[in-house]
Simulated assay, not measured.
Amino acid sequence: MAVSHYAAASTAEIVVSILELLDRNTDREHGITAVWIADQLGVTEKTVRSHLHTLQAMQPFGRKIGRIERKDLKHAESADPRPGWYIEPIFDTAQMRLLADGVVLSRSDSDYLQELIAKVYAFAGQSNQLGALGKISTPRNYNREFLNNIELLNDAIVHERAITFRYCTYDVDGTLVPRRDAAGNVKNYAADPYRLMYRNGKYYLICHMHQYENLSYLHVERFRDLSVNESDHSLMRTLDSFNPKRGAPFDWDKHMGERPYPMDGEAIPIHLRIKNTLEPIYDWFDTAQVTQLDEQTYDVWITSNEKAALWWVLQYADDRIIEILSPRSLRDTLQKDGVYLAGLYAEAAHASTGLPNHDS
């Protein structure tokens, strides 16, 4: 039914209303007709078509406006595809899925996540696919300050403001409790925040904690009582000050590429051999230098933080495909860890069988 007050509406009001109808009612498999739009707005079909063609040429807000023809719907996935005019979604399907999956990783409140993901799907014109995402549960030990902390940390990073906070560890039942000193007092921390990022399924703040010299990598969900300095540029140190080359900007991508697990300490050259596959190398180290020695063996150089490299190589120990050649310190640590594990599990095996543990 026509809306009579649009008969006297201005051109701008009609154009805005057309855009709103396109945004609410269309996607790549569902269009609306000029006749239907005209009926909704109480204006002539000729007026609507004129504005649609103008919008098609303009691409307002960088979004394509066009027509879906019946032939375009030959391979449509939805149950009720519909030809007509449509406006391109803000996100394509791949962008939608990446954003939605990133949201799920945040370990936040389930109701909030469902609402946020619904908005992402709506912007992609894929609201009918929401059910495929499955049920989202709130983590049992969810930090209720998490979402507010994200907002505060983002503001602090943008304006280069120092932060103060309490940092949590886990109690025996898995709940988050603030860290305490030897006297039982809750510890308070101050830091310069630089970057928020996901790594290995965790959401990290990379920062300079004022009591330390190196960078720190803190789990965002463990922050409590976070507050931000009200003054801009109140950092004790800038991120660029951590670059070994004085006066040069900090190379963030290089820094994180040298740390399969976020941790402080310098990155060093590491020499190794790997057999049968290069997946463990290039899954973790984009800039590895690899030489093939024979049909099954590769000689590899990577640059990595030594502790992070230790954790990385241990996860492939059961496959027996990697040998560290240098540095000697990393080989020694692996040897000591191997001796410890062999002793630990040899004792456990003998205890379970009731047999005495004789040294060989």
Rank of each mutant, 00 (worst) to 15 (best):
W85L: 01
W85V: 01
W85D: 00
W85R: 00
W85E: 01
Y86R: 01
Y86H: 04
Y86C: 02
I87C: 05
I87L: 08
I87A: 03
I87H: 01
I87F: 05
E88I: 03
E88Q: 12
E88Y: 02
P89R: 03
P89C: 05
P89T: 05
P89D: 06
I90E: 07
I90G: 00
F91H: 04
F91M: 02
F91R: 00
F91N: 01
F91Q: 00
D92Q: 04
D92M: 07
D92C: 07
D92S: 06
D92G: 05
T93R: 09
T93S: 13
T93N: 07
A94H: 12
A94S: 11
A94Y: 12
A94C: 03
A94I: 10
Q95R: 11
Q95K: 10
Q95G: 05
Q95E: 15
Q95D: 13
M96W: 02
M96D: 08
M96T: 10
R97M: 15
R97F: 15
R97T: 11
R97H: 10
R97Q: 11
R97A: 13
L98M: 14
L98C: 10
L98K: 07
L99K: 04
L99F: 12
L99S: 04
L99W: 08
L99H: 06
A100Y: 02
A100H: 01
D101P: 00
D101Y: 14
D101I: 13
D101S: 12
D101W: 13
G102C: 05
G102A: 07
V103T: 08
V103F: 14
V104N: 02
V104W: 04
V104S: 03
L105C: 12
L105S: 12
L105F: 09
L105N: 09
L105H: 07
L105K: 03
S106P: 06
S106L: 11
S106I: 05
S106C: 11
R107A: 11
R107H: 10
R107V: 03
S108P: 02
S108N: 13
S108A: 14
S108Q: 04
S108H: 01
S108G: 14
S108W: 00
S108T: 13
D109W: 03
D109F: 03
S110Y: 08
S110N: 08
S110D: 09
D111R: 15
D111T: 13
D111K: 15
D111G: 08
D111H: 14
D111Y: 11
Y112S: 09
Y112K: 10
Y112H: 10
L113Y: 04
L113S: 07
L113P: 00
L113F: 06
Q114G: 06
Q114V: 15
Q114I: 14
E115A: 15
E115L: 13
E115K: 15
E115W: 12
E115P: 00
E115M: 12
L116D: 06
L116R: 11
L116M: 12
L116C: 07
L116S: 07
